[in-house]
Design a protein around this nucleic acid. Structure first.
Lengths: 213, 213
DNA sequence: TATCCATGTCAACAACTGTTCACACTATTT
DNA sequence: AAATAGTGTGAACAGTTGTTGACATGGATA
């Protein structure tokens, strides 16, 4: 007993503490908290490490914010991939898109909630990162639309216009569903139906559109 | 010099300190802050009163939040009134709606930014208050739509469906415009054009809609 | 003129915040 | 077996936070 050895009882989470920090932060943000209301100390407390331990994995909270954006968009992109591989008729495709959306929302609640609430939230760093990612998604969607037979002739400006309208509608639907699905299964299917209707109504107008009247 | 009189130099803002608190809070929230990242102390510091003075006007921060929602929606409702009095043809009406929207956004930046960012933000109290107000606005819009000649026959469910699609598109446009108008006047008119196109595209689909296929 | 109420001030509290530094342990590589 | 890089600990710092209670002021009312 020469040196004060103290018993740290460290938990030795080999290499995944960083991921645990990300997941825990996302979970905490799912409830009544926004990112800039989340403190480093309550996060580390929840994870079970000492405050200073945070700095082993991130230089500061902004860096954590960016990691959260990364994590959240990973699942969002998965939806687009699913849809891309679906080569059904436009009408059946609508229902398929919405179903895929709901499935991903259920599986990645916290991630979607994060995007929704921080898209216009307090932290400029996070906000801009989200905006950048969404713009990318919109471009991808425009490219996908260009491949559809009856949109072949369209110019890119109009394609982007439709893409943004669709994306906005879907994001809005996602948020509504997100909000209700936790407690109300019946309301969820009602919102799904409405989301389908929104998409269908938009697509109804498309054939009648004429650019630059 | 019997009693320690101390020189309070109170500013005597007769009855409008409450309003100043609301306005200042909105202004502060316009920048890089979210409501639950806003502290009572920094607010009162900015306003120029001592922290405890806050409690003369609000029991707690939640109450302030509700007052902010109130204030922010006051201007949003003004838009609908403007539009309601406009009895032009559907096509010209679209342009008029967007122009009215932009005008109000410019005049009430902070209020719109608050609604946008706190709609899915951290505070449950504020979030629910906003959601309730938006639902009201949507209902009003549905009623307005019912008066349009070629929508007379529609059932209420479908009317609400359109109303929500339109409202979502407008809110999304408002937020985009809000974000860009501070620094980029050219980008603003581009976004206005896009907002008009979104509305027009939606309205194009409406005559072809058939309920319950 | 006297009183009263709305609005402000000041001091103090315990609790919480981000960040620093030097140190301890351990798994993997040398 | 020794060295190393990764990860967690503990104490300490100067600031900030929400909320309390008792007190001061001044304009309107009685």
């Amino acid at each position: 007993m020469s040196t004060r050895t103290s018993k740290p009882r460290r938990l030795s989470r080999r290499g995944d503490t960083r991921q645990i920090l990300v997941d825990t932060a996302l979970t905490m943000l799912d409830g009544d908290k926004s990112f800039d209301g989340l403190s480093l100390r309550e996060l580390t407390r929840e994870v079970g490490i000492v405050p200073t331990g945070f700095y082993r994995h991130f230089p500061d909270m902004d860096a954590l914010g960016l990691a959260l954006v990364d994590e959240a968009f990973r699942s969002l992109r998965k939806i687009l991939e699913d849809v891309r591989q679906d080569t059904r008729s436009a009408d059946r495709l609508v229902a398929s898109v919405v179903k895929s959306l709901v499935r991903h929302i259920r599986a990645h609640r916290a991630g979607f909630a994060f995007i929704a609430s921080e898209r216009f939230g307090g932290s400029a760093v996070v906000r801009n990162a989200i905006r950048r990612e969404l713009r990318l998604v919109q471009t991808e969607l425009a490219v996908d639309l260009a491949r559809l037979p009856y949109l072949k002739e369209w110019n890119t400006t109009d394609l982007h216009m439709i893409a943004s309208l669709i994306l906005n509608a879907m994001v809005a639907s996602a948020i509504d569903i997100l909000d209700v699905s936790a407690r109300d299964r019946e309301g969820e299917t009602a919102l799904m139906k409405r989301a389908e209707q929104h998409l269908r109504l938009i697509l109804l107008g498309v054939p009648h559109w004429q650019s630059e009247r």
